[in-house]
């Protein structure tokens, strides 16, 4: 070697004070020169940190689409993980929602003017109900018992997941709404308010039954009410909307009052 690095230059390198060209030159030289390598101060902490970063890259699995989207939108990584793990947010569920909407929209548009748009209005509010059924509970979550025994508030967990399910299913339904040939008197809110009411009722019932059972009850109840009502006027009129709001309020209050029932089985 015809030249060596002096200590002040090495210090500037370690502090990140050298430009890229000078730093590369220094690195190439220290690879070859033992004398200059001895000037490099070694901080074991840096190696440890680097190693942990490498271990993370190897050990931590690739996050799913929804989890990454949640993280990018500012949701903390631990919350994104527990929300995204809901079966209701897996690709299969999202695909099923889209398929149902495609069929409902197709059925509604196949015979415009004959009130067939109502098929869409019947189906759309049930999508978040199905999502809630798949968001929580021992039938859909293999680690449900471990979730219950953990300090995380199961009520809050269900709320996060229900909110995510609502966003996905209502968002998807909203995309299809413009192609449904509904009269101008029937707006977006016509099915959104019933959807909220049915979802909150499912959540309230889930404090007593498994969410899948609660959603079955709600679906059956909805069909029993809505199908006969289709023949006798507009089931999405102002009166029905007011009733939906009332149901949503009562179910919401019950859901909150019974919040502890999600955290422990057999709670009186």
């Amino acid at each position: 070697m015809t030249w060596h690095i002096d200590q002040p230059t090495m210090n500037r390198y370690e502090e990140g004070g050298l430009d890229r060209v000078a730093a590369s030159s220094l690195e190439a030289h220290t690879n070859q020169c033992g004398q200059c390598r001895s000037l490099v101060s070694v901080d074991p902490g840096i190696f440890e940190l680097q190693w942990l970063k490498i271990a993370d890259r190897i050990e931590v699995g690739r996050r799913g689409l929804i989890e990454r989207a949640l993280e990018r939108s500012g949701v903390p990584d631990h919350i994104a993980r527990v929300v995204a793990l809901s079966p209701a947010l897996r690709a299969s569920f999202v695909l099923a929602v889209l398929l149902v909407l495609v069929f409902a929209a197709a059925a509604s548009t196949s015979n415009p003017g004959a009130g067939s748009y109502r098929i869409f209005l019947i189906v759309a509010p049930l999508l978040p109900v199905a999502g809630v059924a798949m968001a929580f509970g021992k039938l859909v979550d293999p680690a449900h018992e471990l979730t219950l025994a953990s300090p995380i508030d199961a009520f809050r967990l269900l709320l996060w997941r229900a909110a995510a399910v609502l966003t996905v299913s209502l968002g998807a339904a909203f995309l299809f709404w413009p192609v449904v040939p509904a009269p101008s008197t029937v707006g977006f809110a016509a099915w959104v308010i019933p959807a909220f009411a049915l979802t909150l009722t499912t959540l309230a019932l889930s404090s007593r039954f498994e969410p899948s059972v609660g959603s079955g009850i709600v679906t059956a109840g909805w069909l029993l009410v809505i199908l006969p009502a289709l023949d006798s006027g507009n089931p999405f009129g102002a009166y029905a909307q007011a009733l939906s709001l009332g149901l949503a309020f009562v179910a919401g209050v019950l859901f909150v009052l019974r919040r502890d029932h999600f955290n422990r089985k057999g709670q009186s």
Binding site: E59, P142, I152
Partner: peptide, 25 residues
């Protein structure tokens, strides 16, 4: 440790324990 702890079969061991660690705050 429950008698029948459920597992997310497609998770790696690390990710499964990591998820439960999140639940444990």
């Amino acid at each position: 440790l429950p008698q029948e702890p459920g597992f997310y079969r497609n998770f790696t061991c690390f990710d499964f324990i990591d998820y439960l660690a999140i639940l444990k705050e």
